[in-house]
């Protein structure tokens, strides 16, 4: 049992932190690609910028500025600094619910990004700067895991993180392999794996055979890699089934949706997905993630009072 507002905030902390980490990684990969051939750099920039929303030709042509924008522009809704400010604002609202260790990690990375020295640090060494942000966010997750009770609040935090991750990876795959996707060259495919933090785990499964189809298979269906959509849906289902235990039977919504999505990925077959068109499958998965998000709200946060008043 916890306050509905608190559950909502924890859920959003999970989402925003996940988003910040993903965007920081995209910005980093985009910068690294500028060292490659111009066509590759442009392709990587297009993918990275499309995956977070805004890929105009000017922005693709100026990867350094775009990368700095993704990291530090407060006016950009998806930038790392914006996401972390929101995560921290939510954390402040539930300061009594998270441990000091967890709070300190988040507060620290927020202060560093929002502080006066951030732009200079970025200009002095952008890759190192982004790398440190990602490492700090891992520390936050580690602190949450190691110091918070693994009860309801922690589950809402992880539910948010995994739902966000499934949607972010889904969107990235859609940009790369969905409708109207162009043929990607080898360095670009490697960059896509880096954007999902999947290069090393991928190589261990498929060796250095970097091709579009196994990449799609790995990021979609791998059971063990924590950023594959299948892994995320397993987690979402697991957290929701525990969280739903105490809600009344009428509110089976999000748990049922999550179970169905989990089964869909668990029993999916790559050949079948390709026959239908991978974009159809990806669109379906993203739509169901959206439904789960709304279902969580209806069941736990914004439920109608009439149904819960004592008789």
């Amino acid at each position: 049992m916890m306050l509905a507002r608190v559950a909502d905030s924890l859920y959003w902390i999970g989402r925003y932190v996940e988003r910040a980490e993903h965007v920081a990684r995209l910005a980093d990969v985009m910068l690294t690609a500028t060292l490659d051939r111009a066509e590759t750099a442009a392709q990587v920039a297009r993918i990275a910028l499309s995956a977070v929303g805004d890929a105009t030709p000017e922005r693709i042509a100026t990867p350094f500025e775009s990368s700095r924008g993704l990291a530090l522009d407060r006016l950009e809704g998806n930038s790392v600094v914006s996401s972390l400010a929101l995560a921290r604002e939510n954390a402040r609202q539930v300061r009594d619910q998270i441990t000091s260790e967890t709070w300190e990690r988040l507060n620290l990375v927020h202060l560093r990004l929002a502080g006066a020295g951030a732009a200079k640090s970025f200009n002095d060494g952008s890759s190192a700067f982004l790398h440190d942000i990602i490492a700090d966010l891992h520390l936050f997750k580690g602190a949450a895991d190691a110091t918070m009770s693994h009860g309801e609040g922690w589950r809402f935090l992880l539910l948010g993180a995994h739902l966000e991750r499934a949607q972010l990876i889904g969107r990235l795959l859609e940009v790369c392999f969905g409708r109207g996707g162009e043929r990607l060259d080898h360095p670009t495919l490697t960059a896509v794996l880096r954007m999902s933090c999947a290069l090393e785990p991928y190589l261990r499964v498929y060796t250095a055979d970097v091709r579009a189809r196994p990449i799609l298979e790995f990021l979609l269906l791998n059971a063990e890699f924590p950023r594959s959509i299948r892994f995320c849906t397993d987690e979402i289902e697991a957290h929701l089934s525990v969280l739903s235990r105490h809600t009344e039977a009428v509110h089976v919504g999000p748990g049922r949706l999550a179970g169905r999505l989990k089964a869909r990925l668990q029993y999916a077959d790559m050949a079948e997905i390709e026959r239908e068109g991978s974009h159809v499958f990806l669109e379906g998965v993203l739509a169901e993630c959206g439904d789960i998000h709304r279902g969580v709200y209806d069941a736990f946060v914004a439920y109608p009072l009439e149904m819960r008043l004592p008789a």
Partner: peptide, 15 residues
């Protein structure tokens, strides 16, 4: 929420 002069808080599992 106040209902019938009782005060409740909205939790994830109801009031």
């Amino acid at each position: 929420v106040v209902h019938d002069n009782m005060v409740y808080m909205r939790t994830t599992t109801g009031l």
